[in-house]
Design a protein around this nucleic acid. Sequence first.
DNA 1: ATAGGGTTAG
Length: 548
Amino acid sequence: MLASSPSSSSALSVAALLISCRSLRSLEQIHARIIRKGLEQHPVLATRFLSFCAAFSAPAYASSAFDRLSAPNLIVWNALLTAHARHSPLPTTVAVFNLLRRRSPVPPDAFTFPSLLSSCSHSVALLLGFSVHATILRCGLEADVFVRTALIDFYGKCRELGAARKLFDSMRHRNEVSWTAMIVGYLSSGDLASARSLFDEMPKRNVVTWNAMIDGYVKSGDLVSARQFFDKMPERNAVSYTSLIDGYAKAGDLASARVLFEQLPERDVFSWSAMISGYAQNGQPGAALKIFLEMYNQNIKPDEFVVVGLMSACSQLGSLTLAKWVDLYVTRSSIDLSKAHVLAALIDMNSKCGNMERAASLFESMPNKDLISYCSLMQGYSLHGAGDKAVGLFRQMLEEGLMPDSITFTVVLAACSRAGLVEEGRQYFDLMTNEHLIVPSPDHYACMVDLLGRAGRLTEAYELIRSMPVEPHAGAWGALLGACRLHGDISLGETIARKLFEIEPTNAGNYVLLSNIYAVADRWADVSELRTMMRGKGIRKVPGCTWI
DNA sequence: ATAGGGTTAG
């Protein structure tokens, strides 16, 4: 009897340990201590332990600890369900809920449903949510504020605004959370006006409400209103800053994002990742890397979003040395490499930086290879002189039954061009338009122009550019000018160059190309005339770009 | 002792 009723003071000391726990590893140590001290069956301690598993995103560990309990009560069951609802796929969560229904000593209560419903709304699982709602009615829990709010949130996120509003209007006691759930519902279906009028109508708002409005405006692209809300709110937290930083970053206004980031008193991992991926997505990989290093030096643990941003920056920089360091860093971190987007970014980085062996072996390790990873690998091969391998991968992809999209075709056409596979490229262009009904973009045309031009079929390339239903961009003309230089076609080169001087008058590369065409033909007078013209327009030669 | 908000790749 004495052995099975351990002193409450040791339970208390373990509970105190839990509060200071900072990693999954120390959580495991605490679990070992709980078992050693014979406190395993302590229901309060078990509940707290499970909620810490949830905090460390370890639902499987929560389950394994839970499975050792001989007679879990409903509260412990609820804690387990919450751990899964936040971190497991919906089917797993539903399985836990079904077990709970069968095995819990008492029927589900008002604490059971909010987490289950939030899992449903996260997956926009409308039908499942309906049946959960039916269960709630059977249990007589629809009037509970938490349950009702979770229902409003669920219907709102599933864009069933009518159902959500009915539940909202018939509520006896609403709190800020219920109002916010309704507002978020309107926001997620893009009804900013209704959201705004509810916001104005509600008696008391909290930080979450303000943040929801900011996020809604950011997502709808109205950064001015988002900023007004941000400036007006009585108190801000990291989320308020990060939503707006993210908005500025996605709109390409890194300067404004940076100012807010510098003002943010307590940066969390979200704000760091907003800046890092913001810079990476706007073609400023150097700046992304600098922010990452700042974060790294502050010993902040990166999450998957940070490393995806970092790897994307590294891909753009193309440095093999850096890629090797980042690869090692990411592999050694606790980040789950099997997550699709992490793996895709890792493959892409190695591929773009020329570590094809590593890229290929990562690719081979994927159980379900997706379009994006195929594209990454194809681009790597294409970039590093193995266009034929890239095209081979594309064939393999088709055989696997994957449906290539617009970007895939851009990649494969570029690969064909590099490998000199003119006929195959043409076939793929036809396949794209005739079978996949993809309307060719300026990029696709630019690839085709490059393909034909490199093969010396300049007239055909020129005809293609002129027959384009969309406006060709500088890339297409540039490819053709490059081809003219390659094949020494002066007269076409002059025509194209004149066109390019109009479209991008300050790009020195175009002047250099034309000058090279003249030089090869010994037309030095034209070369010097061109230089004078450049000087007259104040155009500077880009360093590292040769004249001849 | 348990319950509501944020980002990700070619």
